[in-house]
Amino acid sequence: MNVKKTLVALAAVATFSAANAADKLSVAATPVPHAEILEFVKPMLAEQGVELDVKVFTDYVQPNIQVDQKRMDANFFQHKPYLDEFNAGRGTDLVTVTGVHVEPFGAYSSKIKSLDELKEGAVVAIPNDPTNGGRALLLLQQAGLIKLEDASKITATPRDIAENPKDLDFKELEAATLPRILNQVDMALINTNYALEAGLNPTEDALLIEGAESPYVNILVSRPDNKDSAAMQKLSGALTSQAVKDFILEKYEGAVVPAF
């Protein structure tokens, strides 16, 4: 083979390799339901020439850091209020690709069967991140248990409570730990993905739960530089397909609600 043919062959190999690399996507996700939904769409993407690599994380920080540092292409675990708060606090510039589903936030207890049984001075655990903690307090306000100084503040903390008739004692803890300490408190406000992982059924076990109209839609997140790539758009299309909608409705029976 002469030099010219060799260069042409090498260029073809390089082009082929680049095309293959562009058709691989690594996505960080929490186990339930995000990773399960991603595993469901893997065959759909494979048929479109996209190899999907799902990496499971159990916290709400590393998935964003991994994407920002270009160690992962995208993540799927959070809602936009959390993403906005993360970007503002960390100086990142992560962006929404598409909205997929809502996980109605709920209040759970191993000690009481209804909110009426919640005693004065009861210990209530909520997530310690601003958006999910605020979400918990808004839900408790909706139930009439507390009243916030600003009734619509999505990043409210216990310091923003104006009225607390039952003198509830709020404990702010990492969201992932809440199911594990459920027997140590009177009630805990738990994100549905962690509730599902712990074997809780939101539609049956929650003492209080958000409606399907919740604004906290879980989103596929990436960076500005890869948001519009062909592979990312194929993933976006798969996650908002009729097949995924049917999968969510059948598998989660109301604990996870399609948002498209």
Results as ranks from 00 to 15, higher is better:
V221N: 08
Q142K: 15
E163V: 10
V67N: 14
F105Q: 05
A198T: 05
A206H: 04
D225A: 08
I154G: 00
K42T: 14
V102G: 01
K171D: 04
S222D: 07
L115T: 02
L7E: 13
Y216A: 10
Y252K: 05
Q66L: 05
E213L: 02
Q48H: 08
V3L: 15
E210D: 13
I65S: 09
K55H: 03
T157R: 07
K42P: 04
G106M: 05
E47W: 01
V32P: 01
D116S: 13
E253I: 01
A162D: 07
P215T: 06
L196H: 12
E36R: 04
Y60S: 03
V13C: 12
N193P: 15
K119S: 13
V100Y: 12
S241Y: 01
P165D: 03
A175C: 06
G99Q: 14
D84Y: 06
I37W: 10
K171P: 00
L249R: 12
N193R: 13
L220D: 01
I190H: 05
Q184F: 06
D186L: 08
L249A: 11
L235I: 09
L83F: 06
L196T: 07
M72E: 08
V8M: 10
G89H: 10
P165F: 05
N183R: 14
F77G: 06
T98P: 09
K245H: 08
S109V: 00
N191S: 08
E163D: 13
